[in-house]
Design a protein around this nucleic acid. Sequence first.
DNA 1: GTATTCCCTAGTAAATTGATAGGATTAATA
DNA 2: TATTAATCCTATCAATTTACTAGGGAATAC
Lengths: 137, 137
Amino acid sequence: MLSKKTKYGLKALTYIAKSESDSPVQVSEIAKSEKIPQKFLESILLTLRKSGFLGSKKGKHGGYYLIKETSEIKMTDVLRVLEGPIAMVPCVSLNFYEKCDDCPDEHECSVHKLMIQVRDNTLKVLRNNTLEDLAGK
Amino acid sequence: MLSKKTKYGLKALTYIAKSESDSPVQVSEIAKSEKIPQKFLESILLTLRKSGFLGSKKGKHGGYYLIKETSEIKMTDVLRVLEGPIAMVPCVSLNFYEKCDDCPDEHECSVHKLMIQVRDNTLKVLRNNTLEDLAGK
DNA sequence: GTATTCCCTAGTAAATTGATAGGATTAATA
DNA sequence: TATTAATCCTATCAATTTACTAGGGAATAC
């Protein structure tokens, strides 16, 4: 299941991407419009800024803005930051690999084989979709 | 992430499917061979029996056995019983659908659109794979 | 009739999730 | 310069979920 954190993060990114104006978008505006608890959203956008997806401006008329082209923000990257591994088991994760305690040989593991397929198909979708696609332009 | 419950369940099903003998397979044997905590595995196999994947026999020489052809046990079905929804958000779930509190119109929701694609691709894989494929014959 | 196996209900410690609280810092502007 | 408005940061917390464990009951083979 996708966490609320990730869901809110994606909705917020989409909202910012869709915003026409040049000035930064405020957390309060996003929170209200997307029905996201403001304080929670604050912490999410902070994470997205620290991960290099967003820039921010403090003080009056401050807010958040994209620092990359929407077409260059891949869903794989966003998901990995907000949700963690894309793979359903650590032993098939590209970026968060961990060996299973129980498997002597993971190439013999039926779950491993299945989850490789799931991972590859999920990756295909997430790599194909950028923020540009989410924002629908 | 896949829960241990699901992972253990899949490994146990595979083990039973691979077992050549006619007599039922004992929990203790599976637990030892697959390095799964026995009591935990007991509860998982119980669930699988109640869901119609396994039959059981009590007492000496008892154990669990498949009650369907391996080729008829689809991963979608197993996953739904052990893990719950396959979709990453309830609003794109076929079997566990729930409306989002925050979305006025889910067809406008960027997350929804993305997660539909992920779901469809995951379903494709899971429907294509049966226990026969996992057991590798 | 006894050992062996599954059956069933409870409970529980640890981790994760989805927040909230409270204030520090920075910037615009009157 | 004082005020206001915004982000930044740390800490905390209740509820839920996860990954088990405990303890015994019921059926079956021998």
